Simulated assay, not measured.
Amino acid sequence: MAGFAISMVYISMRKGNAMWQLQQLRHFVAIYEQGSVSAAARQLGLSQPALSRSMQRLEDAVGLVLFQRDTHHLRPTDFAQSLYRQANRILQESAGLDRMVGRHREGKAGVISIGCGPFVPDILMQMLSGPNVLAQGQRLDIQVGEFHTLQKGLYAYRHDFMVYDLRLRQRLPDQDDLVTHPLLALPLRVVASPKIMAASAVAGSDEQALKTLAFEQRWALPRVSRNYRRETATWLTALMNERGGPDYQLDTISSCLALCREGKALTLAPDSMIAGDVASGALCILPLDAGVDAQPSMYRLRSHPLSEPAARVWQFLASSQT
């Protein structure tokens, strides 16, 4: 339809003949997040009276009070808290539609965007680097991030799908709209350079000596969510708590392994990423139980049908073995 602009779409949540505009929802979300009309007005670049009038129109349309006002701040009502969750979803999907139209207009429909959590990007590239995965003119855009950030990207249609730990599924809203497909569970091994082992003269079977060595060495780890930290073995949890985290916090396992090969740090990695190095003697596995594994799973939305290229990648991953 000529001249159609998604950003001007009206959201038909009716009360009588009233209709809410996306703009009013944006105003509401800004006030909810900022906690005051003045702060939200500054953020939006509006005057306070204009923003107050917008909220009054929204409250009139709803027939309910959204904020309890006192001298110092606004307190959202129970209804406002429920509305905030739905309004965020609506605004994200609207922005996603804008981006989808823009990508097609710019000829970027062949880009497959995948949001990835820790331990995933390198494994994905192992799986997707073979021939016949991507057709001519198609390319992968793999973006690494934390769960909360990737979740926003999924619901805003910035990602065709995301790959993250299966154990976090329940944190996603609207489970009926969610499609998941688990990939293989990947135990994580404690990995070191033979240089470190030779310098320490620690016997490979002496667990206590190996743990002492682990406390003495630097560590390189990818950025992980709290659930990984909670599940690590007691000795590794104590080590990270003592240091306040790893010495090197990097985006990917491959970056951590690069430091490990040089003898600069220990790291954790799945078997599939270290088999060649272990066989060649470039790395060695320490017989210590890290107490954690990666359980990558693919997530997509039923309400966001995959493009043909993205669907092909999804099916390839679903049928592949690492």
Rank of each mutant, 00 (worst) to 15 (best):
L266P: 00
A311N: 15
P270A: 02
D289A: 01
T267I: 08
P305W: 05
P309R: 11
S307D: 10
M273G: 15
E262I: 04
A290T: 11
A310D: 00
E308I: 11
M273E: 12
A310G: 06
C284M: 14
S307P: 13
S307H: 06
R300D: 01
Y299L: 03
M298G: 00
A294Q: 05
P305T: 02
S303Y: 05
L288E: 00
S307L: 03
C284G: 08
G263L: 09
V278I: 14
P305K: 04
I274D: 00
P270G: 08
A282H: 13
V292K: 03
T267L: 07
A294M: 09
D271Y: 10
P305V: 04
S280W: 12
K264L: 15
G263W: 04
Q295A: 13
A275M: 11
L288D: 03
P296H: 05
L288N: 01
A282L: 14
A275N: 10
A311S: 15
M298E: 09
P287V: 13
A294K: 07
D271S: 15
S280G: 09
I285Q: 06
I285L: 06
S303C: 06
T267D: 08
L286H: 09
S303L: 03
G276L: 14
T267R: 01
A294E: 04
K264Y: 10
D289G: 06
S297T: 07
A290H: 00
A275R: 12
P270L: 04
H304S: 02
A282V: 13
S280C: 07
A311W: 13
P305N: 06
P305D: 10
E262M: 13
D277T: 09
A311V: 05
L286K: 02
A269H: 08
D277N: 12
L283P: 03
R312P: 01
P296N: 07
D289W: 02
R300I: 00
D293P: 01
P287L: 03
Y299P: 05
C284F: 07
L283W: 06
S280F: 04
L306F: 12
L268M: 14
M273V: 07
S303K: 07
L283C: 02
A282P: 08
P296S: 06
K264G: 05
A294N: 11
A282D: 14
P309E: 01
H304N: 03
P296A: 05
C284D: 14
L306M: 11
D293C: 11
P305I: 04
C284Y: 07
V278G: 09
P270S: 11
P309D: 00
V292I: 09
S272H: 12
H304G: 03
P305L: 09
I274T: 14
L268F: 00
G263Y: 06
C284S: 07
D271I: 05
R302M: 10
L268D: 01
